[in-house]
Nucleic acid binder design. Structure first.
Lengths: 201, 201
DNA sequence: AAAAATAGATGACATTTGTCACTAAATTAG
DNA sequence: CTAATTTAGTGACAAATGTCATCTATTTTT
């Protein structure tokens, strides 16, 4: 019997996915978690063969969870199941050596198939996602730049960003300018949206 | 047997929800759709007791679907199942006389319960959602203002917005200014985010 | 230790955005 | 048919943002 842990912050979706998996005769959802941290603890205390995890969650993201499991050399296979086909996300997932990256757009029947395939040792990342991950290249933004764009995305002013990061307003504007150059945009909002879309924030 | 139509644009979630519902002995998912338009057609051609629909979908949203069904006096009960607890959404749902507004954060067991309750004639909207819908008040933005903020949300410049809506740049700036006043914000990005968060776009 | 790269700052200037008062035309309501 | 409202525009100025060259420490590399 394949023992599965499902990690997803929306309870309804979590329950529904569990129901879907439990339809398979040889699979059993032996645990659930609503964020990466919870999941990590479950993985320590219980015997898990496959972890199916969303990415964007409170406390700890699915990518951080994958990284942690990889670092601990945990035997469980990790399947990322998410809405987002962001190059940066896929890249980080590959770095954390996940076994599959599956979109919520994919047909429901793919999930069970995917679980069986990863257990047979395969790595499953849709070709178009691979292409995205390749094309998007490595994240060109420094940590500071990422933080600044994250604030910009929320509509914070130069002044507020400067205050939050203990920088002068001039410096913040310089950083924003760098971001715009690197991302080829005309203003901070476009830059922030771009970066978010590529999974760089 | 309760005949159910599930409407949700993410195939995986659609399948999972269907699996969840089919666990109930007296319920059957007799159809699925990935947008409002498809759903509307299914409702015409088939006998449906309950429609469970997401909101944000291509072609036609779940709220537009609910409005259409209400206008046609279709007998099916409509349950909105969504991630978003936006006052504006809840308000529009109530106006379209939906039978329930359920969040994807709610426990999976709530879904079947909810289906049975709406069939017994009850209307189910969580008290905190009601409060939000009340507090947020009616949408203060005119149609033009909504359009302009939608562009602003995407990082479009005054010039681009003006071009798209066949207005002068000055007029666009005046509209943006009005939005900022109505929403009590200091700039367009904040205003756009606010409006989006309240379900006014 | 010298050279190079990095992080932060400054000042100056151009452009964009926000603010406001005031028109003008078109619609709507009384 | 007016009066009031709505919709769009203009001009002028203030404030915020974008652009760029330049400077100073601080690390890092060689």
């Amino acid at each position: 019997m394949i023992k599965i842990l499902v990690v997803e912050d929306q309870a309804m979706v979590l329950g529904a996915l569990s129901a879907l998996i439990d339809l398979e005769a040889d699979m059993s959802v032996v645990g659930t978690a609503t964020n990466g941290l919870e999941a990590l603890q479950r993985c320590e205390s219980e015997d898990i063969n496959v972890v199916i995890s969303d990415i964007e969650m409170p406390e700890m993201t699915g990518l951080e969870l994958a990284q942690a499991l990889s670092k601990n050399q945990h035997p469980a296979k990790v399947i990322i199941l998410t809405t987002f086909s962001r190059g940066g996300y896929v890249r980080r997932a590959l770095d954390a050596s996940v076994s599959a990256y599956l979109l919520k757009d994919a047909p429901a029947s793919d999930l069970a198939k995917c679980i069986r395939l990863v257990l047979s040792g395969e790595t499953i990342i849709a070709p178009e996602l691979m292409r995205d991950a390749w094309q998007s290249g490595t994240n060109p933004l420094s940590v500071k730049e990422q933080k600044i764009l994250a604030y910009a995305l929320e509509g914070k002013s130069t002044e507020e960003i400067a205050k939050n990061l203990y920088l002068s307003q001039g410096t913040v504007r310089n950083y924003v300018h760098n971001c715009c150059q690197k991302l080829q945009t005309k203003n901070r909002v476009e830059a922030a949206r771009q970066a978010k879309a590529k999974g760089w924030l």
